[in-house]
Design a protein around this nucleic acid. Structure first.
Lengths: 269, 269
DNA sequence: ATGTTGGTTTGGTATAGCCAAACCAGGTTT
DNA sequence: AAACCTGGTTTGGCTATACCAAACCAACAT
C-alpha cells in the first residue's frame, strides 16, 4: 500500500525504544509529582494500550517507580536510572579528582560549584556541589549549558583554537538570555581572548538575571582542556571588588586538579 | 501454528524495550572501557543487526556515547542517563537536606558517607560523598545494599516494627558475605534491638572484609524512618575505642537532618 | 595478495507492537 | 441509589516493524 520506504536514517532505529525514551524524558519533566497514563498517552500521541505496555516494562525494571493512590497511578523516574546515571559520570575520569576539590570550594566559599566538559558543542555539567541552605540554582547533572553565556562554556571555548570556537558558536548560535548576553560573535571572540589572558571566565548575569558565575579551565597532561569548573551565586553588591579573590581561589582549585591530571605549568607557552 | 499465547505477565511488556534495557545494563558493567557490538550481540543472544539498531537509537538520544577507534567502535553510557538519574534522586526530598550534612561529615572525618532509603526491602543508596584520595569503596548510587549486613540496612530495619523487619528478611534472605555476616534471623533480631537501643548500627566486616561502617536513622515529621546515613572506612586498629566518638558525630548529623525534616525529639517514646 | 575481524546494509518473514474498543473499579453527581 | 464520569486494564485482530540470516565492506594482520 502506502508502504513508503522509511528514510535511511530511520531504517536503523527501533521505534518502540525511541518512544520509550520519549516517555522517560516526558516523565522527567513532571518531577516528583509524577505523571498519569492518560496524560502521557495524549501528549505522546499514542494509544493508552501502547503507553501502558511501555510503562509496565520500565516499571518492571526499576526505570520508573509508581505510586498508586486510590484508582489513580502516577509514574516517576526510578532508581535504576540513578544507578546508570551515576555510572555514566563515573566513566569520566575527571570527576574522581575534581569532585573533592569542588566540595572544598563550596565549603569554603558557600557557593554552588560545578564541573563541566565539552560535548557536542555544549558544556555539559557532570558534577555539582550545591551550596547548603541557599537558593537552589538549576545545576542539574547532564544539563547542557550554552557555550556563549555560561562561565564553564566560555572557559572551555577560550582554551580552544579560534576556528574551533567559531565552529561551535556557528553551530549553536548565540540566543539572547538576558539583556547582558553577548550575542555578537566578534564581541564574544574578544571576550574569549580576554578570558584566556586573565585565566578565568566571567558570566555577569548573561544567562540568568541576578546570577553571576566565574569559571576556569582544567588542563590534562597533554595541555588540552579536559573540562572546566565554576562557582555560582547571586550577584552580590560588591561583586566588582570580590571577583578578584574568588577568581584567585577558583584558579588555585583548577590548577590543583590540572596538576593531578598530569598537567605541568611548564607547558604554558 | 505453535502460536503459543505469551504468558499473561509478558503480554503487557514491550520486548524490544526490555532488550534495550538489558543492553544498557550490560554496557554499564563495562565501565569506561566500553563494549563492542559483536560482543554485546553474542552476550544478549541476539543478532548483530538487532543490537545495532538498538545501539543506534540509544546513541542518537544520548543514552549512549561512542568512541570510534579505527575500524572498531565502543559504546559507553551517555550523559542523558546522568541527567535522568540526577532527576530521579532529586525526586527524593531527603537528598536536599541530607547532602550538605553528608559533605560536612566526610570533610570532618575523612570517611566516605552515604544516604540510603528503604525500597522494596533493600537499602538503596541515593546519595554519597567519597572520601578524597582514599581507596574507592563501592558506594555507587542506586546500589541495593543487603538489609542484614550493611549499616544503613540494619539502621533502617531497626526502626521498623518487628513483623515488618521479619517480612523483609524472609523475602531477601540472609546470604553470607564474610565470616562475620549474621545469617541467623533470631541473632539479627537481637542485634536490631540493640541497634535501636544504642541509636546506631554497626557493620563490623559483615559485608566486606576489612571494611567497617556505622549507620544511623533519619526520622521525618511523623516519626517514621525516612532513610539512613552511614560512614564507611577501612577498619582501623583502634576501631573499638574510636567507635564511640564516630557514632556520636554520626548521630548528631542524623539528628540535624531529622530535625530539618520536622522531626521532634519529643516524639521519642 | 589473502584471511580475519568487526561494523554496516539488505530482503523477507513472522511476530510483536499498536490501535480501537470493550471492560472494570472508584469516585462524583443527579 | 442509580446513572455518570474518569482513568486504568484487558481483548482481538491487523499490519507495520523488529528480527534474523546472509551479504557486504573496510581495516588490519598475516
Amino acid at each position: 500500500m502506502d508502504q513508503r520506504v522509511r528514510s535511511l536514517d530511520e531504517r536503523y532505529r527501533v521505534q518502540s525504544l525511541g518512544r520509550a525514551l520519549d516517555l522517560l524524558e516526558l516523565i522527567a519533566t513532571r518531577g516528583k509529582e509524577g505523571a498519569r497514563l492518560t496524560d502521557l498517552a495524549r501528549e505522546l500521541g499514542l494509544s493508552k494500550a501502547a503507553v501502558y505496555a511501555l510503562l509496565q516494562t520500565l516499571l518492571n525494571r526499576g526505570f520508573l517507580s509508581d505510586m498508586t493512590e486510590g484508582a489513580n497511578r502516577r509514574y516517576r523516574l526510578g532508581l535504576a536510572l540513578a544507578r546508570l546515571g551515576d555510572m555514566a559520570v563515573a566513566n569520566i575520569a575527571l570527576t574522581d579528582v575534581a569532585m573533592p576539590e569542588l566540595r572544598r570550594l563550596t565549603a569554603e566559599l558557600g557557593m554552588t560549584s560545578r564541573l563541566a566538559i565539552l560535548d557536542e558543542g555544549f558544556a555539559v555539567v557532570v558534577g555539582r556541589v550545591d551550596a547548603p541552605g541557599s537558593i537552589r540554582f538549576d545545576a542539574a547533572l547532564g544539563r547542557r549549558e550554552m557555550p556563549h553565556c555560561s562561565a564553564v562554556g566560555k572557559a572551555l571555548l577560550s582554551a580552544l583554537p579560534q576556528e574551533e570556537a567559531l565552529r561551535i558558536l556557528a553551530q549553536t548560535s548565540l540566543p539572547r538570555r538576558t539583556p547582558r548576553t553577548i550575542t555578537a560573535i566578534p564581541l564574544l571572540m574578544k571576550e574569549l581572548a580576554a578570558t584566556q589572558e586573565r585565566g578565568y571566565a566571567i558570566d555577569d548575569e548573561e544567562d540568568t538575571e541576578g546570577v553571576a558565575c566565574i569559571g576556569s579551565c582544567i588542563f590534562n597532561r597533554s595541555g588540552h582542556a579536559a573540562g572546566a569548573i565554576s562557582i555560582t551565586g547571586l550577584k552580590p553588591r560588591d561583586w566588582r571588588s570580590r571577583i578578584g579573590e574568588l577568581a584567585a581561589r577558583l584558579r588555585q582549585c583548577a590548577g590543583s586538579v590540572s596538576r593531578q591530571l598530569g598537567y605541568s605549568e611548564a607547558l604554558d607557552a
